[in-house]
Amino acid sequence: MSDAPLLTVRNLRVVYPSDEGDFRAVRNVSFTLGRERLGIVGESGSGKSTTGRAIMGLVPEPGRVEADLLRLGDTDLRTLNERGFRKLRGKRIAMVLQDPKYSLDPVMTVGRQIAETHRHHFRSSAKQARAAALEMLEAVHIRDPERVYTQYPHQVSGGMGQRIMIAMMLIAGPDLLIADEPTSALDVTVQHQVLAIMDEQVRKRGMGLILISHNLHLVSSFCDRVLVMYAGQIVESCKAAHLSEAQHPYTRGLLAALPELGHRRLVLPQLQRDPAWLEDVAPLTDATP
């Protein structure tokens, strides 16, 4: 059972209709995810966040999501309506966003928010929920869970806020965590703590993780596998450790354009965008393995 992919995405398309014609934000994206850490990198507008949102059923109107296959375990996500997705979110898939300040309710203590999530999914008593929430706060290495439980979101730092978000997202025991730029607003040292906590939980619970980020270094050092997206398509898919040997000129161009500490160049090679990269890649068919 553990060999079966957690998430199967085949030819996912997200289209936003507009006055100037349809905008194809995601074009024929296909991948499968096991109990692993998958990174999706790309620049702004590459469709990486939209891909994550499509899996969560969070593409806003008037956007349309289509796919040949979009399965989470044995659930077909294409057939779900908003109610179906609401049941799924938290319980089976969870999402951590860049800024916890916007994801947390500013007028409720963080502890209560986590406890409410527990009650919502397990119909537990107030006491059970509180105990579970405290336990979860401890699991994300918050030293004084009792104190943090009674704090309001504006009273906690960015790193602490992101730990709280992780606790809240994991309390219902989802199989899949989608983290969209979870650490971009944080300082490097705090960034790494949050990632380490996420990593620990994902391993311990045997979950799948999709890390969406613009940071090539971070993704390649944190994830098992990396998808590189450009203009709504996956242009490269490789083992994270092998990202430096990437094949696609876009990936290579991005890597070259990064300033490096030990390798100072007077002029950084600028990415020359090739119109050919915009051409549609062939959609996956049953014949392709």
Binding site: H214, L254, P259
Partner: peptide, 9 residues
Amino acid sequence: DVSVQAEIL
């Protein structure tokens, strides 16, 4: 973005 950063630098 990374590619734009290189241009500005």
